[in-house]
Simulated assay, not measured.
Amino acid sequence: MLQDKDIVNDYLNGLNASMKSYAGYITEANNPELRQKLVSLRNGDEARQLSVYQYAIQKGHYKPAQQATPQEIQQVQTELNQGS
C-alpha cells in the first residue's frame, strides 16, 4: 500500500514533468489561442505544484535545499544579466 509520502512525491514528479513539457509546447505553438490555453494549464500546474510542495515540507516528506545567501542570489542575477 502506498504511503502518503509516496503519493505526494509521485504527484510532484508528475507535475514537474508536465511543466517541463508545457515549456516546449508553448514555445512551438503557432496558434495564439492554443498558446494561451497552454500557458493557462501550465499556470494551474505551477499553483498545484507549489501547494503540494508546501504540503510535503509541512508533513516532513521533503527537505528543501539550504536557502541561497544574498550574495549567491546577486551572483546569479549578475550572470543572467550578462547573458542578455
Results as ranks from 00 to 15, higher is better:
residue 5 K to N: 04
residue 19 M to C: 08
residue 79 E to V: 08
residue 42 R to E: 01
residue 50 L to G: 13
residue 33 E to L: 15
residue 19 M to Y: 03
residue 80 L to R: 01
residue 57 I to G: 04
residue 16 N to I: 13
residue 65 A to I: 12
residue 46 E to P: 02
residue 75 Q to A: 12
residue 2 L to W: 10
residue 59 K to G: 00
residue 33 E to F: 09
residue 32 P to L: 03
residue 46 E to D: 05
residue 13 N to G: 12
residue 71 Q to N: 07
residue 3 Q to L: 11
residue 52 V to G: 01
residue 2 L to C: 05
residue 74 Q to G: 06
residue 50 L to M: 09
residue 71 Q to A: 14
residue 36 Q to H: 10
residue 52 V to L: 10
residue 22 Y to S: 02
residue 59 K to C: 03
residue 70 P to E: 03
residue 39 V to W: 00
residue 41 L to S: 11
residue 46 E to Q: 15
residue 43 N to S: 15
residue 47 A to C: 03
residue 80 L to N: 11
residue 24 G to A: 07
residue 74 Q to P: 05
residue 34 L to D: 14
residue 38 L to M: 09
residue 5 K to H: 10
residue 62 Y to N: 03
residue 5 K to D: 05
residue 66 Q to K: 12
residue 21 S to K: 14
residue 1 M to H: 05
residue 27 T to K: 03
residue 20 K to G: 01
residue 25 Y to R: 13
residue 22 Y to E: 01
residue 37 K to P: 00
residue 17 A to V: 10
residue 58 Q to N: 13
residue 4 D to K: 15
residue 80 L to A: 08
residue 26 I to P: 01
residue 10 D to I: 12
residue 75 Q to W: 06
residue 30 N to Q: 14
residue 63 K to P: 06
residue 55 Y to D: 05
residue 15 L to W: 00
residue 65 A to Y: 12
residue 29 A to I: 11
residue 25 Y to I: 06
residue 61 H to Q: 07
residue 37 K to W: 00
residue 22 Y to G: 03
